[in-house]
């Protein structure tokens, strides 16, 4: 978390549904927590697992991935491809210490401005409650190895 304990939330959203849903939250003047930063992609299908790893590496306290509801993808199936990808990646990251409080997936349509605002508020509250990720974030950039981490080879299953 950066200054004053404000969590950092990076959102990867598609252009056609969730970005437009966030626009609608704006035109409807719905207020939500200001910590989210949106990176716009054409489709959730464009989002590589490396984007998420990079965001955590840079110190994001949470990452949000959001696109069109199943069946509504502007590109017919990009979101389905993405969903399958996340079905595996989120489990892998959870296994290694980035759990579902930190990695949120959502379908938000262009009509769901309220849902977008609610989601950002919920996610922000959840991340605040979980506390800063920095210390526990296994992906976090550190400039030197922590002394207790420097260990010799040891075989284990």
């Amino acid at each position: 978390m950066s200054q004053a304990g404000a969590p950092r939330i990076t959102a990867f959203v598609c252009n056609w549904c969730t970005y437009a849903g966030a626009d609608l939250a704006g035109t409807s003047r719905l207020q939500y927590a200001p910590e989210v930063r949106i990176v716009k992609l054409p489709c959730t299908g464009r989002i590589s697992p490396l984007f998420i790893l990079k965001a955590f590496e840079g110190g994001a306290d949470a990452v949000l991935v959001s696109g069109c509801h199943p069946g509504d993808c502007h590109y017919t199936s990009g979101n389905y491809h993405a969903r399958r990808r996340w079905g595996l990646l989120r489990k892998l990251l959870d296994l290694t210490g980035i759990d579902s409080r930190r990695l949120q997936f959502s379908w938000i349509s262009a009509a769901e401005g309220q849902k977008f605002a609610d989601l950002i508020n919920d996610l922000t509250a959840k991340v605040r409650e979980a506390g800063p990720f920095a210390g526990a974030n296994p992906a976090r950039k550190r400039l030197a190895p922590a002394p207790e981490e420097a260990q010799g080879p040891r075989r284990e299953s």
Binding site: P42, G45, R46, S48, Y75, S77, H81, A82, R85
Partner: peptide, 13 residues
């Protein structure tokens, strides 16, 4: 059509 789904499945980018 420019969705980029192929880009994200390419392991070697």
């Amino acid at each position: 059509q420019g969705c980029g789904t192929c880009v994200a499945v390419c392991r070697s980018h």
